[in-house]
Design a protein around this nucleic acid. Structure first.
Lengths: 342, 342
DNA sequence: CTGAAAGCGCTAACAA
DNA sequence: TTGTTAGCGCTTTCAG
């Protein structure tokens, strides 16, 4: 492995000069050229490990996500990656699998590897602990979910508003018993989407002069919790359909559970648009679905891009107060919520 | 940041001893315990950067894939990750986007970061160049595709056998005119799968006493090339359906094209199992499809797992001759090939 | 079994 | 502008 010293010798300059050539220091063009030629000839590439050790700052950022197989997170990852390219940072993708332990392992690796910073889509709102990083001054940005009490920048989605808009849309289209398949309790996105659903449905019921005390009953009856995975969505949908008074529409709190819900509906001989289906988050491979699916579209790519931007600001040492950026969702109306048959 | 020296001082031993405690050197239990307690108290974690510099061997392996949004590769990535965990290696995921330039950039980063090794799903069979790594002695394993002329271990899939088995299955189920939507000409995986189809169909036709010279005609007529994407599959399927004597089944050479083919069929008012559909590679979100889809399953996870195993052998310095591991595919029979209506 | 000491390759003061 | 020098935190001989 050729080092900076080999190049220095070959070019007849000092190692410091070689370093300067590679880091934008002031060097006379003539010598700089000599150095570059020597480096080229010897096939020299600066040893980033040595550099990191010396500068106390790596050129890698960690991205910790709970599910690498969920298209939402891969798209987010692309956003991070594209943004990072611009500053010559590379991205290490760490899959926590939604497990707090695995996540902790990765976070401590980030520390030990002296990464430049970390972007985290937390596995748990209550149990993910970012303090080990922030205490030691490592820049951290939370994305999609913000762990409780963490004092870090965050880029989030306006879940509550999205959930409310979705529910209002279903009501406006004439569905009367709108159910909700919510995410896991304790996950912030899940709770916010659920809150949006509640507000939206409450308003709709009031508009129909449903008595206040019945409203709470209805809300409780029509809500099920899933695990943000296909199987959970299927099970929850099946339960809802088994209700004495089953729903005629469902708001599903994430994309994978929507896939499961659609399966359960099909098995029961039901389907959109007679039974309204609205997904929070686009469903992968939507072309496979007929009728086309109404969904709350999430800015997954921008989430990643924005988070990476904030992180780079911190890495560059810009001292701003903590920021929380909230990105809006967009309701994409398609055919699965066309309204129940008359 | 607390260092090994801080711990040494606190425990009243030398830094060397602390190092030994953390690396399985021989230390008397009593002192080891003292060191561990001190480390615990100070919240010490060994600086991996310094260690890498010193030992000249990092604890990160790079995984370069052409498309992070393709489920095939994310599954492969999980395989790599799980295997790496066992040796305490972490995995850096690098997305080349199928671009040789981006790929080259990542490969040189791998070198500069002194990674322990690299697993590459090459962006191009002809233009991906691994020699920069192998020349400098960095362990490299090719996965899914082996770049031409690279002398590295490789883990591949038995494409030809899979194609043949698929076609035989369709014939056995009673389909008479079995078409093929092949991949792009010049791509090795595409050609191997096509060859499998040809062999399989030829055998089936012979069994039906179709004259040899007609067989070639049939093969030519019933084959279309697509681009491994949804739209290509749809177009190819549409062409096949427009034939004077259209097929009654199709073998589609990759997952995305299958999605397109299914769309085209639906538009024509056709569908499995009357029209047999068999996909090479599982279709993402297969649960969305009714009837369920028969597919040649690719061992994507095992591909990653196996590649990581080979890489670890190399990293550990085991000197074996170069290996090429070929993993078998498995035909997963489901409902889309139940056979044509009587 | 333990400690002292010498770097791994690079960068950042400081002098020249 | 350039070179000299002193480490970054760790591992690893080599003596003891």
């Amino acid at each position: 492995m050729t080092t900076i010293n080999d190049v220095a010798r070959a070019a007849g300059v000092s190692p410091a000069t070689v370093s300067r050539v590679f880091n934008g220091g002031r060097v006379t063009p003539e010598r700089a050229e000599r150095v570059r030629r020597a480096a080229e000839e010897l096939g020299f590439a600066p040893n980033r490990v040595a550099r990191s050790l010396r500068t106390q700052r790596g050129s890698v950022i960690g991205l910790v996500i709970p599910d690498i197989e969920n298209p939402f997170f891969t798209s987010l990852a692309r956003g991070v990656e594209d943004a990072a390219q611009q500053t010559n940072l590379s991205v290490v993708l760490c899959n926590s699998d939604g497990e707090v332990d695995k996540e902790r392992r990765y976070l401590s690796i980030a520390l030990a590897e002296h990464m430049a910073g970390v972007i985290v889509a937390a596995a748990s709102r209550d149990r993910t602990d970012l303090s080990a990083l922030t205490d030691r001054g490592m820049p951290v940005v939370a994305v999609d979910r913000r762990p409780r009490g963490a004092s870090v920048d965050a880029v989030l989605v306006d879940n509550m508003h999205g959930g409310e808009a979705a529910t209002e849309h279903l009501a406006a289209r004439g569905y009367r018993r709108i159910a909700c398949i919510a995410g896991p309790p304790g996950v912030s996105t899940a709770e916010e989407r659920l809150a949006g659903y509640r507000d939206g449905l409450r308003a709709a019921l009031r508009a129909r002069d449903v008595p206040e005390d019945e409203i709470d009953d209805v809300l409780a009856t029509l809500t099920r919790h899933g695990d943000y995975r296909v199987e959970g969505g299927r099970a929850a949908m099946a339960e809802l359909l088994a209700l004495p008074e089953p729903p005629d529409a469902v708001f599903v709190a994430n994309n994978l559970m929507t896939v499961g819900a659609l399966q359960a509906l099909r098995e029961a001989g039901l389907g959109p648009p007679d039974f309204g289906v609205l997904s929070f988050g686009d469903v992968p491979w939507a072309p496979l679905i007929t009728p086309s699916l109404t969904a709350v579209e999430l800015p997954s790519y921008d989430l990643g891009w924005t988070a990476a931007g904030l992180l780079q600001d911190r890495i560059a040492g810009r001292k701003k107060p903590l920021q929380t950026v909230v990105l809006r969702t967009a309701l994409r109306v398609r055919d699965s919520t066309a309204g129940p048959r008359r």
